[in-house]
């Protein structure tokens, strides 16, 4: 039987999933504690919290890692269960747009004036 396997990729995505997992396991608890301690009560408080650049960069990187991690995970699920290549591609695209869109949106929110 002829099969299109041997893509010469796989380790990269696998490594990325592990690397992002490490980032998330460090950043998520840190950020959560930071938010809990500084729990702002109004919009101005939230704005103040995200005023320092390092805070905005850190949050963006964390969410980027989350998106990449989610991408590998969802892709794995789709590879297991969705065996029609066209449909799988369409679902990949939807996931990529959703995740990339979310990250872009977050960036826009963080760096928006006001």
């Amino acid at each position: 039987m002829k099969l299109a396997v041997g893509a010469h990729t796989g380790t990269g995505t696998w490594l990325m999933q592990r690397a992002t997992a490490i980032v998330l396991s460090l950043a998520l608890p840190g950020l959560t504690i930071h938010f809990m301690l500084a729990w702002p009560v109004d919009f101005a408080g939230w704005q103040a919290l995200f005023a320092p650049l390092w805070m905005r960069v850190l949050l963006l990187l964390t969410v980027l890692a989350l998106a990449l991690h989610a991408w590998v995970g969802v892709r794995d699920i789709l590879m297991d269960y969705v065996h029609f290549t066209g449909l799988r591609l369409a679902l990949y695209l939807a996931v990529i747009i959703t995740l990339a869109g979310s990250v872009a949106w977050l960036a826009a929110v963080l760096w928006s004036q006001a």
Binding site: V5, G6, A7, H8, T9, G10, T11, T13, W14, D76, M79, D80
Partner: peptide, 8 residues
């Protein structure tokens, strides 16, 4: 080195 052969 393939997304399916090993990494499933």
């Amino acid at each position: 080195e393939d997304p399916y052969r090993l990494y499933r």
